[in-house]
Design a binder for these strands. Sequence first.
DNA 1: GCCAACGTTGGC
DNA 2: GCCAACGTTGGC
Length: 156
Amino acid sequence: MRYWLLKSDPDTFSWQDLVASPRRTTRWDGVRNYQARNSLRDDVAVGDGVLFYHSQADRAVVGTATVTRAAYPDPTQFDRKSPQHDPGSDPGDPRWVAVDIRAEREFAHPVPLDQLRKTPGLAKMTLLQKGSRLSVQPVTSGEWEIICRLGGVATK
DNA sequence: GCCAACGTTGGC
DNA sequence: GCCAACGTTGGC
């Protein structure tokens, strides 16, 4: 099993939105970056652990989630009314994929970006590299344990 | 709100 | 195939 960090702008879709979703589960769609797409399509598997990160004003890891469905075509790419519509994607060979995730543990203490930067053992995190904008990032098991501990939840 | 960094587009 | 221009992301 692997671990991932998923970025979300809380003004668009927040942790609270995820928790309020039916079965605490949502479709993680709208990824429109090829590198992130490749991770979703090729490497993200059911049962993988997810660190849920708020970008923008919040900038903190706020909880954990579990992947409950592996990659499938992102329906929003074919929805002309969606801001995520991609007129260049061929329905016979969809360009973008989605996965499903379910909220697991809410952090008692959200872990802000500043704290991540200060924490020994996290310096190599993709999130902390200059210019890193990937919305789907791999996380090592060591990083996962450190961050869950900081967040106040036990690791499995 | 600003702007640096990044990915994508399109002219050549 | 190069690269300038553009739009977007996201930290500050």
